[in-house]
């Protein structure tokens, strides 16, 4: 078996940028590089050499953990190839053909379900932040009660809290962008 040619690209997308990510992956495929894997932190994308073809990439966000067979089968039945899973994001692709209808180009056929996905993304990350900040506060509080003198550990925890607040502000900004997308879609539905 010949060795497959592989490239690694350093790139990362924020949670509100899944559309841009889909477009970039399609672009890479057109250039003859199909997505193979994404590293654990989501900074590097590995591509495998292939024929330059027009493939549509789509991302779906699914909260309830494990990839259920039923979920992936549904996509396969519709002709979408499951590529990989990165955290709660599932990547699918389908080759574009001339006789394709617009409904075949997207994994969502109405804005109501696109809105629902954006809301899931927001809810999931909001819960995550609340959990992290909450446990940091509790840990700091407990330590302060147990050891009233300031310890190094407390200092570290305080630092972590400040850091988390900053990240929360950043994620909050991402939420704003997602909310904006939701509002735009709602305007399309309700006028």
């Amino acid at each position: 078996m010949e060795n497959k040619k592989i490239i690694r690209e350093r790139k990362s997308f924020y949670i509100s940028e899944f559309r841009a990510e889909e477009a970039w992956l399609s672009f890479m495929h057109q250039q003859g590089w199909k997505l193979q894997s994404i590293d654990k932190i989501g900074f590097h994308y590995t591509f495998e050499a292939c024929d330059p073809q027009d493939w549509i990439y789509q991302l779906d966000f699914k909260e309830d953990g494990v990839a259920e067979e039923d979920y992936l089968l549904m996509y396969e039945d519709y002709g979408w190839e499951p590529v990989l899973r990165f955290r709660h994001w599932f990547y699918f692709r389908k080759q574009r053909t001339d006789d394709m209808k617009t409904d075949d180009l997207s994994i969502f056929s109405d804005d109501a379900s696109r809105i629902e996905m954006c809301r899931h993304v927001i809810r999931h990350h909001a819960r995550l932040i609340a959990l992290i900040l909450g446990s940091l506060f509790v840990a700091t509080g407990l330590l302060t009660i147990l050891f009233p003198q300031l310890t190094i550990l407390q200092g570290i925890l305080m630092g972590a809290i400040v850091g988390s607040i900053f990240s929360a502000m950043f994620v909050g900004n991402q939420f704003k962008r997602l909310q904006h997308m939701i509002r735009q879609m709602e305007r399309r539905i309700y006028g």
């Binding site: 789509q58 779906d60 067979e69 039923d70 979920y71 089968l73 549904m74 996509y75 039945d77 519709y78 979408w80 209808k101 409904d103 075949d104 997207s106 994994i107 969502f108 056929s109 109405d110 109501a112 379900s113 629902e116 996905m117």
Partner: peptide, 29 residues
């Protein structure tokens, strides 16, 4: 035409809200 993401999302939501219920699996579906 109902796309898979819309289909799966709607089924999960309706199941959660009690409008439909899971009966059984056939061919893993």
């Amino acid at each position: 035409i109902i796309s898979p993401g819309t289909m799966y999302g709607t089924l999960s939501k309706m199941e959660k809200d009690g409008l439909i219920r899971f009966v059984r699996e056939e061919d893993k579906r």
